[in-house]
Amino acid sequence: MRLKDKVVIVTGSCTGIGKAIAIRCVAEGGKVVVHGRDGAREQGEAIVKALGADKAVLHIEDITFEGAPQRLVATAVNKFGRLDAIVNNAAMIVSSDVHTTDLPLFRSIMEANLMAPFAIIQAALPHLSNARGSVLNIGSVNAWSGEPNLFGYSVSKGALMTLSRNLGDTLHREMGIRVNQLNVGWVLTEKEAERKKAQGLAEDWYKDLPRVYAPAGRLLKPEEIAAAAVYWLADESGPISGQVVELEQHPLIGRNPPKN
């Protein structure tokens, strides 16, 4: 029970990585706020039912709405009486490049992927300080430069990485709150499977991947990201703060070129 009695908000947790993290948190003795947007209400209700109403509560709202961060934090405190940790997982993933990313789209991506996580942290500061709690931001390996057709998303994740390092230093020294980030690689989530099929790939596209992209012969699983997340939310990670860790199946720098 590595998270015994800890209360954790996991944004974007009705599907994919966030769902896996919420389930793992409860399995480790924690209590969670399951969060999603309007279209995910049915999925979120099913997760809360499976986890138990005494261990999970659902909050449905777009995190970019005015006052949404405060209401999300209030859901945790009103239901469980405290707040120990935040997992900023929700993100806007949209395909666009330098030619197709206009300023309104760029602003909406940054609002969802950078400004909203910051606002949630800010709203939770008194509670996280009391608990000497932690924040785990879920980033992406695209933060290092990203793909041409994921321009806005990649830039937002690079900015989130700087936010994690900056607050990981400042908040740890001033308030005892740790802030860290996981930059995840290619993960087989429900939405990723849908995106690739929409791009014209076969139904089972993920079963035969080039080893240059997936040396293990498969993609990462959401449950594997959740297993890593627990360490950063638990007390066993000690005083470590301001760190960014890559969760990918090959190195991003200095990789040996694949042989033909």
Rank of each mutant, 00 (worst) to 15 (best):
M1E: 04
L3Q: 00
D5C: 01
D5L: 00
G12T: 02
C14E: 07
T15V: 03
T15F: 09
I17V: 08
K19D: 08
K19L: 06
A22V: 08
I23K: 08
V26T: 05
G30D: 03
G30S: 08
K31E: 01
V34Y: 03
D38Y: 04
A40L: 12
A40W: 05
R41N: 10
R41G: 11
E45G: 15
E45P: 13
A46H: 12
D54E: 15
D54T: 12
D54L: 08
D54W: 07
K55H: 14
V57I: 14
H59G: 09
H59F: 15
D62M: 10
I63G: 10
I63M: 15
F65M: 13
A68R: 03
P69D: 09
R71P: 12
A74V: 02
T75W: 07
A76K: 06
V77N: 07
F80K: 02
G81V: 05
R82P: 02
D84R: 04
I86R: 09
N89T: 05
S95F: 08
L105N: 07
R107F: 11
R107Y: 11
I109P: 03
N113V: 09
N113A: 11
L114F: 14
A116E: 09
F118V: 12
A119H: 13
A119M: 14
I121N: 12
I121K: 09
Q122P: 09
L128H: 14
L128W: 15
S134I: 05
V135I: 13
N137F: 10
I138N: 01
G139D: 01
S140E: 06
V141Q: 03
S145I: 11
P148L: 05
F151C: 11
V155N: 02
K157F: 07
K157Q: 02
L160R: 00
M161I: 01
T162G: 14
T162W: 06
L163A: 09
S164G: 05
R165D: 02
G168L: 02
R173P: 08
E174C: 01
M175T: 03
G176F: 05
I177V: 15
R178I: 05
R178A: 02
N180R: 07
N180L: 10
L182H: 06
L182Q: 07
N183H: 13
G185E: 04
L188A: 06
T189L: 11
T189N: 08
T189E: 10
T189P: 09
R195I: 13
K197F: 10
K197D: 00
Q199E: 15
G200E: 11
L201A: 15
D204M: 05
D204A: 10
Y206K: 10
Y206W: 14
Y206L: 07
K207F: 02
K207E: 04
D208H: 13
L209F: 11
Y213R: 14
G217T: 07
A228K: 01
Y231A: 03
L233E: 02
D235E: 12
S237E: 00
G238Q: 01
P239H: 04
V244S: 05
V245I: 14
V245T: 14
L247C: 01
E248V: 05
Q249W: 03
P257E: 00
P258C: 04
P258Y: 11
N260V: 07
